[in-house]
């Protein structure tokens, strides 16, 4: 084949352009820190990266939801534990007062303590968590779940399903009716007990022991339920954190520049470009005037 000067010029232009493109591509990747900047740079990686970004946003939301539910459930667990201690104290006092060794005056004093316990318990079940929501109203969490005077339950037994890890939903609310008995078992039992103690009704006092035992059982079940839900939340939190780190890593591998290899490539590109420019310069300087 004849090699004409136009062919050589075209070749020099092409190879210089190619070397320049490769060099500036490396510079761009190093400057931006991104290997993939447009979908056409690497379509599958770009699409996967977008999916990873979606996943990261979702995990952030899940972490936020987990935090909110966790605060509520932990506060409810503390409240139920305090309630259990109060009911347990009332139970012990009842067993004590059922004994013949105590006189009516002792029982009147005990009745006063039982009334105090009832009020303390009412205060506990009507407490709010940090966000201002009531803990034991079910999904009716903007009003006190129990009537502050009568102790009548005003909340509901509905639960709010909240996603705390990908496709893992748990009940994010606590119902007072389910935790303390149906519908206000504990307050009725304590009110009755106070009456029995005040009136020195030994049979009634004996009967109250069974009622309080039933309340204790209900509280134990509620505590166990909350404990398991909090455990799920802790597992979900760990899962979310692991998933976040793993997704970040995967995304980085997909679209971030591997600086070590890219710098090497840039140096190689720089050398190739310099060589190509030198060849081009020598070639284009050639003319009839320096021909010998």
């Amino acid at each position: 084949m004849r090699v004409t000067n136009q062919m050589m010029t075209n070749y020099v232009i092409k190879s210089t352009g190619h070397a320049k493109d490769k060099y500036f591509d490396s510079v761009r990747k190093i400057n931006s820190g991104r290997r993939v900047e447009r979908p056409t740079d690497d379509a599958p990686s770009a699409e996967q990266s977008i999916n990873f970004t979606r996943m990261l946003k979702k995990i952030k939301t899940l972490e936020h939801s987990t935090r909110i539910v966790s605060i509520d459930l932990q506060a409810a667990e503390v409240a139920i534990r305090q309630g259990t201690e109060l009911v347990s104290e009332a139970n012990a006092l009842t067993i004590q007062m059922a004994n013949d060794a105590y006189n009516p005056s002792d029982r009147k004093s005990a009745a006063k303590r039982i009334i105090q316990i009832r009020e303390e318990l009412l205060h506990i079940v009507n407490q709010k968590q940090a966000g201002g929501r009531y803990l034991f109203g079910g999904i009716a969490d903007q009003t006190p779940p129990y009537d502050p005077t009568t102790g009548v339950y005003q909340g509901n037994t509905l639960n709010r399903k909240v996603e705390v890890a990908p496709d893992l939903f748990i009940d994010g609310t606590v119902s007072g009716a389910q935790s303390f008995g149906d519908p206000q078992q504990v307050f009725t039992a304590l009110e009755d007990l106070a009456d029995f103690l005040d009136t020195n009704d030994l049979a009634g006092i004996q009967g109250s022991i069974d009622s309080l035992d039933a309340v204790m059982d209900t509280l134990m079940v509620a505590q166990a339920d909350l404990g398991s839900r909090i455990q799920v939340l802790q597992d979900a939190d760990i899962l979310n954190q692991d998933l976040y780190v793993e997704t970040q890593l995967q995304k980085g591998v997909l679209i971030d520049t591997d600086l070590a290899s890219e710098v090497t490539r840039m140096k190689a590109g720089e050398t190739a470009l310099a060589a190509s420019l030198e060849v081009g310069k020598n070639f284009l300087q050639f003319s009839m005037f320096n021909w010998r």
Binding site: K57, K58, S65, I68, G172
Partner: peptide
Amino acid sequence: TNELDGIGLGPRMTEFRENLNALTADPSN
């Protein structure tokens, strides 16, 4: 349509979905 920088229709759909999801944990907030 390039959404690799996290801006565009797709990311906004995702963001809106996550705003709604976040509200599910505390609907009256």
